[in-house]
Design a protein around this nucleic acid. Structure first.
Lengths: 205, 205, 205, 205
DNA sequence: AATGAATGAGTATTCATTCAT
DNA sequence: GATGAATGAATACTCATTCAT
């Protein structure tokens, strides 16, 4: 009566499909990725993918939904209660800066393509918006915390800062998707950290 | 013995195919645009597209090659000899700021997708690189002119400035491809103009 | 009122189309030859071909009808009244043997393909049959003449000999369409001449 | 985990595709045979053909490679150890003579077209050459055996005989592709057997 | 649960033929 | 007469999805 395979096993498999799918979508693009590519990457048959996801598009959405939030959630978890807002922000910059460039390119290629596609298809748009909101809230809430604690300028606008933060990150990303050196990327991210963080810290103190 | 239709007619038709193709590629994406879509958009049969272009991919490349450079070439032509470098740069900002947002979105969606695709396919990469070089040279040469004439700081770096210029433009673009208000876009572009132009002008004056 | 172009001009053009068409059909095959190929070979536009022939298939048939018979007719014309039957047959062998191999290959490739196609399409079959009859009659009538004149064995069968003649020629042809040396071809044709002619000549004399 | 269908099933299906393909190619020609024709002949969808063969051309090559050799291989298998060389050769003639004419026509139409096409396309040429070599070796090796055993004239040339054998078979074939009576075909093949075999047997006996 | 054979809709491309100029 | 732009039917091939085993 009990299921032959445990829920844990199922979840594990589900995650591994998402992993492989992200990699495939990023490297070949959504249109050029076949369900067989993903199954082959997992070493299983096509049928398995359909056992866990309703279809290719559904899989695409869920990669965005889960994998993109995962990096943010990962950061959140690493925050300790005693970390201040500035410290948290620095951890965020640090995390972005120290991603390996190949992996970053993968994530960004996936992300940019999803963005593009979402501007064309309503159902993807909803996923994208949810994702954007989650990301914006993440940064905005740190800023709010910093304002409350007096670490950041009281006149800083959490929403504006957050928008600027992601716009800059995306802009830089764009430059490096096509190719670029690891060192250049880190330098660019440091400049971003200096500029953005500088605009938040109390100027007069 | 003479051709039935004039060269002017043929060129006109060629341009109209490029126009429709840009619109289709931007709205539906390269993969989802069928040659029939383009032909239908023109009100002709599929065969006509193949009469003017070797195939869908060739058409894709030529839209990039011609349409993207066209906006830059258009600006160049409008420059008068007596315009100074600052004036030219302001014209450039003005032109970007005053593009209609729908048309801008189209251009940018096309441009971003081409960028993404070019990171995956060698032949597109070559076109993309040519295009990037052309764009970077355009801005860099204005900056050089301004340095020579004393309008801009002598220590400004034309190549760096040009890279920053396009990165910022692309970053902003990215934000608006998904949607956004006309007014917000102009405000953002004005901020860009202030910041970037400010960094070029003689500080001691 | 008189035609702008003379009939002679028209016939000349018609023949030049047949020439180019034979060459194209032989080299690329019927299916792979486009009407544009033929027009380009002539240095005129596609339309001209349709001015002289009802369509590609019609042209195909007429190449067979006219060009294939032409080589036979050419031989006939070169016969002088005083030539005996044996002499005529030797001239025929001589003509076949001394064709340039490339040209021969062309003719045979065309001929074999037509044969093949004619086994599949009724309308070509009629043309092929007419052609075969013409060729068989040509050889058979020489044999008949030789029997009457006493040059050939009285018990020779003109029809059988003719059939054997063409079968052998075709069999050899088949071997060389795929490739082969000029010298080998001539040697093979000489063997054919010896064998076939030997079987006709009076044995007891 | 185990495959759903057995390897035997797959091989059977593969063979049935080759069968139908041979029939289609022979009856309609390569160019006029559509993949849908073949699928329809099997009562399955187009996709199945692509499941077993990489494409139409690949299928074409494999029909030649497998089906043509099959008839030869079939004969080889029927040889018993105690059969002498003459006996083997007689079995070969017998097998050719007793093929049903419709089936023979099919095989030959396919074979001739492939030959023709191979003179125009390099990749087919390689297949054709392999096939020719296999066929020539088959006959030549019987002749060699006969020479060794003293059944055949010691001065017979295996390679020459083999070439002549196939040339004659092809020549006769050519005559019957277009049409012809069953009885005439057998008579012709008998004449071929007498002539060729006669030239091999010890003359002094 | 897993497999992978089968389906068939969807698409780029070619080319014979027509016909306005 | 000649041109060549336009048409559109035809066809190879791909791949998401289904489902019998």
């Amino acid at each position: 009566m009990s299921p032959k395979v445990s829920d844990a096993y199922k979840e594990e498999r589900r995650q591994s499909i998402l992993d492989v799918a992200l990699r495939c979508f990023a490297e070949k693009g959504y249109g050029s990725t076949t369900v067989d590519d993903i199954a082959a990457g997992l070493g299983v048959s096509k049928g398995v993918v359909y056992l866990y996801f309703a279809g290719k598009e559904e899989l695409y959405k869920q990669v965005m939904e889960e994998r993109m939030q995962q990096s943010i959630t990962g950061m959140k978890k690493r925050f300790r209660p005693e970390d201040g807002a500035e410290n948290k922000l620095r951890q965020v910059f640090h995390a972005f800066r120290n991603q390996s460039l190949p992996e970053l390119k993968r994530l960004l290629a996936f992300y940019l393509e999803f963005w593009l596609e979402s501007s064309r298809r309503e159902d993807l748009k909803a996923v994208m918006d949810r994702q954007s909101t989650y990301a914006e809230d993440f940064i905005a809430s740190i800023v709010e915390e910093g304002i409350r604690s007096g670490e950041f300028r009281p006149d800083a606008d959490p929403a504006d800062f957050s928008a600027l933060f992601w716009a800059t990150r995306d802009g830089i990303a764009l430059q490096f998707v096509g190719g670029g050196e690891d060192a250049d990327y880190r330098k660019r991210m440091e400049a971003m950290e200096r500029t953005l963080l500088g605009s938040l810290l109390q100027s007069g103190k």
